[in-house]
Design a protein around this nucleic acid. Structure first.
Lengths: 120, 120
DNA sequence: TGAATGCATTACCGTACAGTAATATATTAC
DNA sequence: GTAATATATTACTGTACGGTAATGCATTCA
C-alpha cells in the first residue's frame, strides 16, 4: 500500500477543488450553478468537471432536483481518507491537535453567528 | 487569503515527497543518500530536488555534517500549515479525530516495538 | 596534489491536468 | 410542439511539474 492516500491528495492539490469543498462546508449543499457563481473567472463546465472528480473520490454526493443537481459535502469520506495519513504524524503534533479544537470552537462560533446553512 | 495552504497542498500532492516525510518521521533524520536509497527507481538528483522544495516549504530542515547533509522532519510546520484548513471541517469530523488518537496509539506501539529511531 | 564521494544546480523532455469551447442530454417554460 | 435553462461530456490546448542527464562545488581520502 505505498500510496494509499494518493487519490485524496491529488484531489486536494487543486485550489479550486478545495474552495468548492470549503463552500459546501460553510454554506451547505449547493447546485452547480451556485458553485460556478463563486468562480467568476472560470467557465461552468470546468466546475462541473471538478465536481465529477470530487464525486469519483467520494468527497461529495449529488442528488437531482428537477434539472439541477445538488452537491453535498461528504465530510466523513474526507476525514476517513485523511486520518490514516495523519496518524503517522500524530506523535509529533498532538499539541497542534488541541489547537485545532480551539480553532474549531472559534470557527463554529463565527459560523453560528451568520447561520447561513441552507437546505439543511 | 484565497489559497493560504496552496503551497502545502501542492507539496503534499506528490507521493515521493510524502514518502520522504514518512521516512523522516519513522526513521528520524536521514542523509540524502539514505533517502535516495529508499527510491531505487529514482535518480538521486531527483530526490535532492524534492528535498529542496520540502525545505523551501519549511517541512524539513538540513544541517551539514562533513560532506553530507542531514535532513530532519519539521512536523511542527506540517501541523501548523494543515491545522487552519482542517479547522474548517472539524465540526464534521470530531468523531474521526478520536479515531485518530486510537490509530496513533497503535502506530506508536508498533514503532516502539522496532525502535528504529536514529540520530535522536 | 589528485581522485573520489555527496549533494546541488541547471537544462531539457514528456506527460498529466486545469482550463476552454463546442456539443450533447435532460428538464422546465412558453 | 419550440425555446431556454442546467448540467454533463468530449476534444483540444497550454503549461506546470516530475523525472533524467550533465555539470558544478565542496569535502574527504589516497
Amino acid at each position: 500500500m505505498p500510496g494509499d492516500s494518493d487519490v485524496l491528495f491529488r484531489i486536494l492539490a487543486d485550489p479550486t477543488r478545495r474552495l468548492i469543498l470549503d463552500l459546501l462546508a460553510e454554506r451547505g449543499p449547493l447546485t452547480v450553478g451556485e458553485l460556478a457563481g463563486a468562480f467568476p473567472r472560470l467557465v461552468a463546465s470546468g466546475i462541473s468537471k471538478h465536481l465529477m472528480s470530487l464525486r469519483a473520490a467520494g468527497l461529495v454526493t449529488a442528488t437531482r432536483h428537477g434539472r439541477q443537481q445538488i452537491y453535498r459535502l461528504e465530510a466523513g469520506a474526507l476525514a476517513a481518507g485523511l486520518t490514516p495519513w495523519m496518524a503517522k504524524y500524530e506523535p509529533y503534533w498532538s499539541a497542534a491537535l488541541e489547537r485545532l479544537r480551539d480553532l474549531a470552537q472559534e470557527g463554529r462560533a463565527k459560523g453560528e453567528a451568520r447561520k447561513t446553512r441552507r437546505r439543511g
